[in-house]
Nucleic acid binder design. Structure first.
Lengths: 141, 141
DNA sequence: TATTGACATGATTTTGAAAACATAAGTAGT
DNA sequence: ACTACTTATGTTTTCAAAATCATGTCAATA
């Protein structure tokens, strides 16, 4: 459904939201270790998010990544589209470029409704949702 | 969402259902040309489906692929799981193996309902649905 | 029974995502 | 200023999916 890069991006962003403390930055090393993902690979992904102002970063000693108040207002959908592109949840499940509601593929309407709802949910879920303490426990990242 | 192999498998199966005439077999060549997919690659995929009795084939002159009455009773989900494996629509969207309804990832319940409904729809849609004449027109395969 | 046309199978190549490597650039503290 | 630490960037390598190549197997028919 999502590329690995995208999965890592989501997990890292949520990790940031959950573990961020006032004025404390989280290094790639810590995040990558905690999520058990390749550090260098995650670094690139975070940089990609950073370039689009979806996460914030500071270089040097005590540097790292954090979420600014604005960053937290972004939605999960923005994270996803930043990495996998804007067509991820929109393009035809059979890979047909001409497919649309006007010229639908045989499966178009089997998926359209659910995929649209997923999009809406992801678009309506802001990152700040995950910084809320008291969330249920999650499996290891 | 689905691998290319899987997309090709679905399209080819539906093509078979739509274009099959009494006692007439369709060759890989014709199918591949019509769907605009690599012929040899499609051949492998059809063989995979054939080995699991999801499509039928006959060798030799006038040979080709066709759907037996039993084949038509199969569901789209069976086609998909034959190619992409049984976990395609079940596994965690973030790729976390431990994720389940008991130990959910942060996005588990955002997707669970819709994915489950997709599964049900696909499982309830038999191939015979597509041999029904009078279906709406489809974009080029 | 030989030929031909089709599917079947194994091995190989290509391609792009995923991962790793190497180095640059910036910042805090000494 | 110098060092250490961390993000940023460009290049290379790895790996699996996608695609191709080469050959085998089977059946219709002349």
């Amino acid at each position: 459904m999502f590329s690995k890069s995208c999965q890592y991006a989501i997990r890292a962003t949520i990790y940031l939201a959950m573990h961020q403390e006032e004025g404390k930055n989280l290094g790639v090393k810590e995040i990558a270790t905690s999520l058990d993902v390749p550090q260098q690979f995650l670094a690139k992904i975070l940089q990609q998010l950073s370039r689009q102002n979806l996460v914030s970063s500071i270089k040097g000693p005590n540097g790292g990544f954090y979420l600014s108040p604005e960053n937290k207002l972004n939605s999960l959908l923005q994270i996803i589209e930043c990495i996998d592109g804007p067509l991820t949840l929109n393009s035809c499940v059979l890979g047909l470029p001409q497919c649309s509601s006007v010229t639908p593929c045989p499966l178009h309407f089997n998926f359209f409704e659910y995929r649209e709802k997923m999009r809406q949910t992801l678009g309506a879920t802001s990152i700040s949702n995950f910084s809320n303490p008291g969330l249920p426990p999650y499996p290891t990242y």
